[in-house]
Design a protein around this nucleic acid. Structure first.
Length: 435
RNA sequence: UCCUCAGUAGCUCAACGGUAGAGCAUUCGGCUGUUAACCGAAGGGUUGUAGGUUCGAAUCCUACCUGAGGAGCCA
């Protein structure tokens, strides 16, 4: 039996007789020679079958093979400059596991398709080259994020998905009716639990899915998305900004190092990613508002940025920017106020360049017991639900904070995608639950 | 939730008041180096649904359904 290899490994088996299990990606034929294009999940490789070199029935079978039929090809690997990827297999024999029916052919052809059709066939769309590249970049981003935190003294302490109380507004929560005496919700953030974990371990992070029942129908929103959230005890806003900047630079660098081929398939302008270096421009909210007004925005001090505002702001820079000290009034109850200017909060947003918008939001949390109690009251939150959270301010409270980074927005930015729906295998967006 | 746009062959689109068409996919034929291969032929349609205007509607009008883009909200 020949050795079984993958297409990604083909270069190391030149001249050897091997077998590759896979699927038929495409087939080109020209009389007495056919070129089956094989994919196996690790890559795509052209094979060559000559009528004169094969038994009649094998050649005929191959000639009529349909797209996405499953097969094992056996033959010899050869370096071939005419083939994409530089290697080719001279087919000696094939084993067809299943021939896709001609009467019900594979729906995704090598030609163009519309968004609706592709989304309805997402389970098959994942087989195409472009989707492979995106998912591989996503994998690298997640691995780089984990490596960054693992190598900088953070402990992974994951937080629950079912939560009894809201982290932010209650209008955007998914309610779950299961627990007898309590309403439960799907988490929108692990942050509150992260704070407890940080008081136990110092530096922690969580990484998992989060859920937002927002009626958002834009290219930047998913109802279910993945978020990484670090939280640090004894950290102030400047430290939080430093870590966010360092992590983003590390992640972008890793993708450039390991997944350059995929960025090429995605036709990403890597020069734009190579420019992602320290220091990121830092603006205060005050400066950002002034800047936006000068560029024709209607924004007034006290208001939140609109989608257009983020674009105006980020277009002026060649790398992500950090905007801090937003008005406390538009931020969550737990945000620490600036001691010198209580009307602004010690929060920071990181905005990606090229119009990709907010990828990180974070800041310093309130660590003073009395102030936290006051804020819970002002926001009319049920104190009972927050008793455990309040405890963190009773037993050895310290300045602390962290941030959350949305993985899908980060993938969309690094890959240069128009829409976040391609950044996850099975996206959940408004009005779309299937497949 | 609101605003805008779009639904025609399996897919991508054309026809914009007067006989519904092309490319790809599928089938058959041709081609020994193709690169979304190419060349020839065939099959494939209640034009999203319901109603209306008209001698005549894919085309104009109304409602609904589905999708896309955007707004608000957010990562």
């Amino acid at each position: 039996m020949p050795q079984r290899i993958t297409i990604a490994d083909a270069a190391r088996h030149v001249g050897e007789s091997v077998e590759i299990p896979g699927w038929l990606y495409n087939l080109r034929k020209s009389g007495k020679i056919v070129f089956p294009i094989l994919r196996d999940g690790t890559g795509i490789m052209q094979c060559v079958a000559l009528k004169s070199a094969l038994p009649e029935d094998v050649f005929e079978e191959l000639k009529h093979l349909t797209q996405e039929s499953s097969l094992i090809v056996r033959g010899t690997i050869r370096a071939e400059p005419r083939a994409h990827g530089g290697y080719e297999m001279d087919i000696e024999s094939v084993e067809i596991l299943q021939k896709v029916s001609e009467s019900d052919p594979y729906p995704i052809t090598p030609k163009d398709h519309g968004v609706d059709f592709l989304m309805d066939h997402r389970h098959l769309w994942l087989r195409s080259q472009r989707q492979h590249s995106i998912i591989r970049v996503r994998h690298e981003i997640i691995k780089a994020v984990r490596d960054y935190f693992d190598d900088h003294g953070f402990t992974l302490v994951d937080t629950p998905i079912f939560t009894p109380a809201a982290c932010e507004g209650t209008t955007t929560l998914f309610e779950v009716n299961y627990f007898d005496n309590d309403k439960a919700y799907l988490t929108q953030s692990g942050q509150l639990y992260n704070e407890a974990d940080a008081m136990a371990f110092g530096k922690v992070y969580c990484f998992g899915p989060t859920f937002r029942a927002e009626k958002s129908k834009t290219r930047r929103h998913l109802t279910e998305f993945w978020m990484v959230e670090p939280e640090m005890a004894y950290a102030d806003l400047e430290e939080i900004k430093r870590v966010a900047e360092e992590m983003v630079i590390y992640v972008v660098g890793r993708v450039l190092e390991k997944r350059r081929e995929d960025l090429k398939i995605l036709e990403r302008d890597v020069a734009k990613l190579e420019g992602v270096q320290a220091p990121f421009p830092r603006l205060s909210y005050d400066e950002a508002v002034k800047n936006l007004q000068q560029h024709g925005s209607e924004i007034q001090w006290g208001g939140d940025f609109g989608g257009g505002d983020e674009t105006i702001l980020t277009q002026q820079f060649d790398r992500p920017i950090m905007v801090d000290r937003f008005p406390s009034a538009i931020k969550a109850f737990y945000m620490a106020p600036d001691p010198d200017r209580p009307e602004v909060a010690l929060g920071v947003d990181v905005l990606a360049p090229e119009g990709y918008g907010e990828i990180i939001g974070g800041g310093q949390r309130i660590h003073d017991l009395d102030l936290l109690l006051r804020r819970i009251e002002e926001h009319q939150l049920p104190r009972e639900a927050f008793e455990w959270y309040i405890d963190l301010r009773k037993y050895g409270t310290v300045p602390h904070g962290g941030f959350g980074m949305g993985i899908e927005r980060c993938v969309a930015w690094i890959c240069g995608l128009e829409h976040v729906r391609e950044t996850i295998a099975f996206p959940r967006i408004l009005y779309r639950l299937r497949p």
